[in-house]
């Protein structure tokens, strides 16, 4: 993968973040992979400014693991955004 090639990261939103983002799945164009979670969120905020108010209490996951903002996403990773939960 060339560093200049544009690649896509899919971001999947749950709960009220689906309303904020206008749907469950968002595609973010990035310069290359791997990319840090924080950088993907920064790109997404540029597209969806309303997201900024929610990111402070949003958890991130890949597969069945939570990830920190400093984690790296690789090809095929889908970033999952989890707003405050209300099960029960």
């Amino acid at each position: 993968m060339g560093a200049t090639m544009t690649q896509r990261v899919t971001v999947q939103c749950f709960g009220m973040l689906q309303q904020v983002c206008g749907g469950p799945n968002q595609e973010v164009q990035v310069a290359g992979l791997p990319i840090m979670v924080a950088d993907v969120l920064k790109r997404l905020e540029q597209d969806i400014p309303a997201l900024s108010a929610h990111l402070g209490h949003t958890a991130c996951a890949v597969g069945d693991h939570f990830v920190g903002r400093d984690a790296y996403l690789h090809e095929g990773d889908m970033l999952v955004l989890l707003p405050p939960v209300s099960g029960g």
């Binding site: 749950f14 709960g15 009220m16 309303q19 209490h57 949003t58 958890a59 996951a61 939570f66 989890l82 707003p83 405050p84 939960v85 209300s86 099960g87 029960g88």
Partner: peptide
Amino acid sequence: AIWKYEEYEDGTHAYVKGCPL
């Protein structure tokens, strides 16, 4: 990671405010 989406009598909906994970 579960979310409630309530439907109200007047036809509106809202996600229930939750607890940050």
